[in-house]
Amino acid sequence: MRSARTMLFAAAALLASAAMPARADVVVYCSADEKMCRGLVTLFTKETGIKADMTRQSSGETYARIRAEKDNPRADVWWGGTGDPHLQAAEEGLLAEYKSPMLPKMRDWAVRQAELAKFQTVGVYMGALGYGYNSEELGRKKLAAPACWADLLKPEYKGEVQMADPNSSGTAYTMLATLVQLWGEEQAFDYLKKLHRNINDYTKSGAAPAQAAGKGETLVGVAFQHDVVMVALTGKRPLVTVSPCEGTGYEVGSMSLIKGGRNAADARKFYDWALGASAQQIMPEFGSFQVPSNSDVPVPKEAPDLSSIKLINYDFAKYGSSAERRRLLARWTNEVKGAAR
């Protein structure tokens, strides 16, 4: 029994040391890929000498966490992740207003995002929606390569298309909202009902369909195009990116300051720095091939060619609002998801 007692004492001593957290100059919640996040804060510390702590979580998780922590915020900056949760957080008063001196250098979609949220958030990168198909599987089935949203309705694709459940994934919700804006609500739902017959799975996570298509578990996966590119390049998968011919929507990856953060001054330094050229041009090194928001930084060459993408004029104000989102999600769940295949 002596060993057990010794262990208990040792545990108590260690527990005492575990009770004390260390402090950093600025705490960053990051909702992009781990490597990207790590690279970003490391470069920040290197260039400015300010110590930054980073915690990576998906944008939905980060939003839930900031909301839970609102009476005593633990973080200062929230970098990356799709724009909707940032807008949602702004709507709920969780974020701080800040007009960065870097704003004039931003591309116009990034500034629009800031204006929409009354300067409580700003765009840092942009990526278009699309899908990826596995060329090996396509060859095996001897099918013609798809190029449009409409191609996915073909009977040959029965059980071969995968998309996320828009109730849980921001990516899939962007698709739903894109189609509604592209064709009007009735026609969009008509399309989704037909597509339902070809869907093999509505995944929980928005990243899953591109991964599954990369592995050949499904032929087509609906995703943001830069995510498809990333799976193809970093996972070395036979995956081809498609930008639908009818036109498509996009996400604005955003950055926000958290209201009540403890290191407001350093947080602003990080914010200004992250909008600068040195921060934005490193993104391709970490497998992130989105369009950067700083107009001085060129679009990475691996990124899907912007000139070949027909972008719709996405209305973030309307489709980002919680009321409209709930209505569309409820309709999708009732009319599409529950329907027979």
């Binding site: 939905g60 998780e61 839930a64 109730n167 849980s168 994934s169 919700y173 989102r325």
Partner: peptide
């Protein structure tokens, strides 16, 4: 999990 972190929040 997805009721907390998903798009429906």
């Amino acid at each position: 999990f997805f009721a907390v972190v998903g798009a429906a929040q």
